[in-house]
């Protein structure tokens, strides 16, 4: 799943943005430089979510991303200077992040607690595939793998 798709995705239950966490595998697949397409996509993006996603996949493009999205005047400037040879650093970073970075294995967390698994680059957003935090306890009992963070307090409880 490209980070562009992730940026447009929302939680099917709560309609809130999904945060990428526990990324274990990332693919970089180079594609042709698409300045027109990226410029069209910038107004549709959730910029802070993109920055968080870039941190989650540990991309080195994060330094080239400004804190705030480019303003309309800056967009016009970028449009006038789109050059195949000498790409502006923002455009190069967006090309790399939006179109070339694929999350292969990871999790999509909603702010309400439930999360969805990404396997082979396919997020499973089916209602019965959502994992709720309260289910983690029962998942551990049945032998399913659980995050280490949640496993530790449970061990302490049984020890005392």
């Amino acid at each position: 799943m490209r980070l562009l798709t992730h940026n447009l995705l929302i939680c099917p239950v709560h309609k809130k943005p999904l945060a990428i966490r526990h990324v274990t595998s990332v693919d970089i697949i180079a594609v042709e430089y698409q300045p027109q397409f990226i410029l069209r996509m910038i107004p549709r993006l959730d910029w802070s979510l993109l920055r968080e996603a870039a941190l989650a996949v540990e991309s080195d493009c994060i330094d080239a991303l400004p804190e705030t999205p480019p303003r309309p005047q800056e967009l016009e400037f970028l449009e006038s200077t789109n050059d195949e040879v000498e790409r502006p650093p923002v455009m190069a970073a967006l090309q790399r992040l939006l179109l070339e970075t694929h999350v292969v294995v990871g999790q999509l967390h909603c702010e309400h607690g439930e999360y969805y698994q990404i396997d082979e680059g396919i997020p499973n957003l089916l209602a019965d595939a959502a994992v709720y935090p309260s289910e983690k306890v029962s998942a551990q009992a049945s032998g399913a793998p659980v995050d280490e963070e949640t496993a530790i307090p449970l061990d302490e409880q049984t020890g005392s």
């Binding site: 799943m1 490209r2 562009l4 798709t5 447009l8 995705l9 929302i10 939680c11 099917p12 309609k15 943005p17 549709r44 959730d46 694929h102 680059g121 396919i122 997020p123 499973n124 957003l125 089916l126 209602a127 595939a129």
Partner: peptide
């Protein structure tokens, strides 16, 4: 393309004006 597994009858999980 990117692939997502979801039941279409449950609705499409995308932000407004994405496509």
């Amino acid at each position: 393309g990117d692939l997502i597994r979801q039941d279409l009858g449950e609705g499409l999980p995308f932000r407004i004006g994405s496509f």
